[in-house]
């Protein structure tokens, strides 16, 4: 199971990336993350919604209520252009972190 801190730190890029693939709502986002992480990342409504609403306030995503005949009303979220730019920025930062970690982990220990 991935630690709570790491899960919390990665919430923003993960949500933005999922929404970049297509509009979605809370339940689906949680399921998608669980599926992609093989159940290693466990989100709850209590963790997800504060972030979703913050991103909406920052203008990175937008929302609108959608209702079809068969289902309950659902609030779908979509990524904005600002959100896409923020996602690019996040991607660069995470890539940098990954490369630092990779280079550290691939170094062979030196012997005297």
């Amino acid at each position: 199971m991935i630690s709570k801190n790491l899960t919390a730190a990665s919430t923003k890029p993960i949500i933005l990336a999922i929404l970049k693939q297509g509009n979605s709502y809370g339940y689906l986002i949680i399921k998608k993350i669980k599926e992609l992480s093989d159940g290693q990342m466990q989100y709850t409504d209590g963790m997800l919604y504060p972030v979703l609403h913050r991103l909406e306030k920052e203008g990175l995503i937008t929302s609108n209520w959608t209702m079809t005949n068969e289902t309950r009303p659902r609030k779908y979220y979509a990524i904005t252009e600002l959100g896409k730019a923020a996602l690019n920025e996040e991607q660069l930062q995470w890539a940098k972190v990954t490369s630092v970690l990779d280079s550290l982990w691939n170094v062979q220990p030196t012997t005297k």
Binding site: D45, Y49, P73, R74
Partner: peptide
């Protein structure tokens, strides 16, 4: 204002 959205998810789960 949060009830519908949050409880909808809880119901689906």
């Amino acid at each position: 204002e949060l009830y519908e959205e949050l409880h909808g998810d809880l119901e689906e789960f």
